[in-house]
Structures are given as C-alpha cells and as structure tokens.
Design a protein around this nucleic acid. Sequence first.
DNA 1: TGAAATTAGTTGCAAATGATACTATTCTGC
DNA 2: GCAGAATAGTATCATTTGCAACTAATTTCA
Lengths: 162, 162
Amino acid sequence: MARDGARPGSRPAAAGRLRLADYLPYRLSVASNRASGLIARAYQARFGLSIQEWRVIAVLGEGAPRTAQGVCEATAMDKVTVSRAIRALDARELVRRSANEHDRRASDVTLTPEGEAIYAEVAPLALRYEAALLEGFSPDERARLMALLSKLEARLDAGGFG
Amino acid sequence: MARDGARPGSRPAAAGRLRLADYLPYRLSVASNRASGLIARAYQARFGLSIQEWRVIAVLGEGAPRTAQGVCEATAMDKVTVSRAIRALDARELVRRSANEHDRRASDVTLTPEGEAIYAEVAPLALRYEAALLEGFSPDERARLMALLSKLEARLDAGGFG
DNA sequence: TGAAATTAGTTGCAAATGATACTATTCTGC
DNA sequence: GCAGAATAGTATCATTTGCAACTAATTTCA
C-alpha cells in the first residue's frame, strides 16, 4: 500500500497538506471499523449478539454487578444504547435486573447462568480474534500500540480543542 | 486512567482474561469515535458537512477528478454512502458531475469553486485538529503510531480470520 | 423542610445506515 | 457481433442510531 510518494494525478504532498490516507482520525476510523466489523459478524453469526450487547456481557463478565450507568461508564456507550442492549439481553434471559439497594431509580444488572455460559464461550473467541489481529506484532509493539492509544485518549480527555 | 491494577470488585486479571478496557478492537473503537466525533461536530457546526461529505471533499481536494467508484476506493466508504454524499454535495453545488469520457455509466466528480473554497477552509482546520490531537507526541511516536496502524490494516487485509 | 436542580432509565421520533435489488452500460470470450 | 457476466450508480425498504423529551427518584442548599 503506497502511502508514500505521490499518487498519479495528485498534487505534490506539500508540508501541512491534507492527505486523507495519512490523516490520523481517518486512519483510526478505518482500522476500527474493519476490526470491529470483522468480529461483530462473528458474534452475530454465532451468538446473535450485537457489538453493544457483547460489550455489556463483557463488562458484566468481569465480575461485579453494575447499574446501567456503571455499564455506560465501563463501555463508553450512550445510556440509550446501554438501555436497549440490556433490555434485549434481559428478554433473552442472559442478564437479570434487580433492585439497587441504595437508589430506587437504578437496578443492578448481573449475568444469569445462561449469560455466564455465553460469556465463557465468547470471551476466548474474542481473545483469539485479538491475537489473530496482532499476529506478527512483537510484545513490544503491542505494548506501544496500547500506550499510544492511551496517550491519544488522554489528549481527548484533556480537551482544549475548538 | 487506571488501566492496570484490579478495579474494585473485579476479578483478578488472569493471563488471557478478557478485559474490555484492554481489548484492542474496543480501544480502537473508542479512540476513533471520540476523535471523529469531536471533529465531525466542528465540520457540522461550521460548514454543515457530515463526515462522509467532508471525506469526499477531502479526496477531491487532493487534485484529480474522480468517479464515485474512485471516491469509494480513496475513502474506504460504501458505494451507497458515497452516492448519497455526492448527491448532497451536488445539491449544494459544492461538486459538479460531468460525463466520463470512457465510461458512460460513470461520471467524473470535481469540486466547484465553492467546493474548493470550502476545502481551502476546512483542510487547515482538520490539520489543526490533528495537530492538537497529537500534541505531546514526538515525531517518532507519530511515525510509530501510523506504522502500527498500517501493520494492523495489513493484517486485516491478509484475512485468515475465523 | 421543601423547592429547584440533578440523575437513572425509558420512550418516541426523525435521520442515518446498510443490504438488496434494479437500470444502464461495458467487458469477455467465443 | 452477440450472449452472459461484471460494473457504475441509484432506489427501496427495514433496521439502527441519536437526540430530546419524559417519569421517577434523589440530591442540594437556602
């Protein structure tokens, strides 16, 4: 993939000139969509789970029960999205909602045994996909990639844009 | 953001255990959505452009006229998405479609002067956003991040999943 | 206390998206 | 030069998404 050197017919890549193929937000978007799409198709085909539903299961599988709000924080998903994902999982009896002891607006969400069973199947599959994605990356490269993504997120948290 | 060390109430992070916060496809998705969302809001607010429309303008601004198919290849967008974006831009007279000399199914899409003017305004803005995102990254880190993303895309191209 | 502001979660609606099918044109190979 | 396959682009329809409004419960603080 020739990302360096002028493409036929394109203007010379002057300093500061925008080239979509080298533009970080675009690169991130393409990589993310392709990676997520690939894995999403697998979840969908084998378990009938959307990415959103899978993420809810993933954080609940980490152990502690969470409120919908807690799921929002852990998954960086919108509260509407989380609400719908939980409802769908509840309908399939993969999660259960129970009254939160301290706040009657909220309910605690936990995996049912069926939910745990799905988690036990999907989690290793997800890890295998990640491993396949990172095949050929040295441990150092993997760590660096994660660290760079963290740094990027820290910049996004910092704000100071606009 | 404490990504290392057990979160209260979570199970210990055993080897090979899935933790969403450390899962590459998830990390990519969050970083991408946040970065794109931030910039998309700026395009939308100032120029009324969706990300898709902006991408079409960006590749046309690179110089050569392209057919819709050419735009698809350059933007990694679906042909339906590209078709709609071009139609919207055409309606606003930011692009023009003209008969392709070699293939009467296709038309060449070029920026109108108005489109060029928008490009001339948006491109520097986009570059400033990218620069702000990468503030604090050394040139070496930037190069490494791009290289790692390329490697990831190469893995995705390679297939061999499932 | 108790009025006003905030938060948890859901619902409704409008817009975005994506798969599929369709038209028109071009290519392939005989 | 022609039948069949492939391609450019568009239209259609069902699903998904995202915002704003809403209810109910909780917090704030005068």
